[in-house]
């Protein structure tokens, strides 16, 4: 858990989430989440019927990987809120980096909280997820 005395507004934490995203990882996510939409795993359907250049990752896979960066930073079991907007698609072969930035440190109902701004970008610097999170911190 982050300590109030050791953090300040503007602090950042950055991680590489995945390098050269494999179709197999997308298949793993389909299996664990139960979202078997062929758009994510079936190249034949996705290119010939749906009209996309290839299969692409579930938005929730990117949100899940981004969540790993957040919990590595704020600690396990401390999240109060986590929300994202999916701003661009993630394709096989993408390399993703994710950053959390402290935008507020505050108290609410007797709890010390930190507010984070979240962005995950691909190898071209395009944001694929933007969002925010709130976590409990130690006083």
């Amino acid at each position: 858990m982050l300590k109030k005395s050791e953090i300040k507004i503007g602090d950042t934490h950055k991680e590489t989430l995945v390098e050269d995203l494999k179709r197999t990882q997308i298949v793993q996510y389909a299996g664990s989440s139960g979202d078997y939409n062929p758009l994510h795993t079936d190249e034949v359907f996705t290119t010939k019927i749906a009209g996309y250049p290839s299969v692409f990752a579930h938005g929730m896979l990117t949100m899940g990987m981004t969540g790993k960066m957040i919990t590595n930073y704020v600690g396990d079991g401390t999240l109060k809120k986590y929300g994202v907007r999916f701003t661009s698609q993630v394709w096989p072969g993408d390399t993703l980096e994710s950053e959390a930035k402290i935008v507020d440190i505050r108290e609410e109902n007797g709890e010390n909280l930190v507010d984070l701004e979240i962005v995950t970008t691909n190898q071209d610097g395009v944001a694929v997820i933007t969002g925010s999170a709130t976590a409990k911190i130690d006083s």
Binding site: S33, D35, H58, G59, M60, K80, K81, V84, F86
Partner: peptide, 22 residues
Amino acid sequence: SGGGGSAAAGLHAEQHFEYHLP
């Protein structure tokens, strides 16, 4: 969907979670 309401036969635009208990 069952998953917190992802896109019904469409794409997922946003997802937000509020955690009340572990």
